[in-house]
Amino acid sequence: MTTFVQRTASRRDGESASGSFWTGRSELFVGVLVGAIGGFLLLRTTMMDVPSSVSFLGPRFFPAVIGALLVVLGVSLAVRVALPGHRSTVPEEQSEMEADASGAGSDWKPLLLTAGTLVAHLALLRTAGWIVAGALLFWGVSCALGSKHKLRDLGISVIVSSAVQLAFSTGLGLSLPSGLLLEVL
């Protein structure tokens, strides 16, 4: 993971033709991933249990075709990035995004904070209940994106998650997890 982080962070510098082979080539990772998913499909397809009554094209045909396609695409992506003289070609949709992203790759601190919040939410939803886990989710993301008043935001978060609880269970009649603590009380 850390090597990937470093590669990504220095991606743009590759254009100034400095640094090692890896600079500006973190996209290789995508090619490898695409190829690996294709390989996974192919491997699992050969291992699949197929009902005996299957006629004509069975359940293995499509996954095999897609797996093969992904392997070819993954290799092509990787080769294109690895070729000398590669410049990161960004399609037009991204031009604006990249324009305001002049500079290095990603900011890892807010990104990891956000990801961490999501993981924590997942871990807490059933045990601590929606009100706590939902508030944490709101608070965590708003802090990761640069909150200025952390304490005030905590209050807002709790209010948001309580309001949601009320709206869902009384308004729509849908149940959200209430948490182990309240179940014991």
Binding site: D100, D107, L111, L113, T114, G146, S147
Partner: peptide, 15 residues
């Protein structure tokens, strides 16, 4: 989108 915004947060403050 949110993860992407987070990864750009320092350059373009999200507040």
């Amino acid at each position: 989108e949110v993860l992407y915004v987070a990864s750009r947060a320092r350059r373009k403050p999200a507040t």
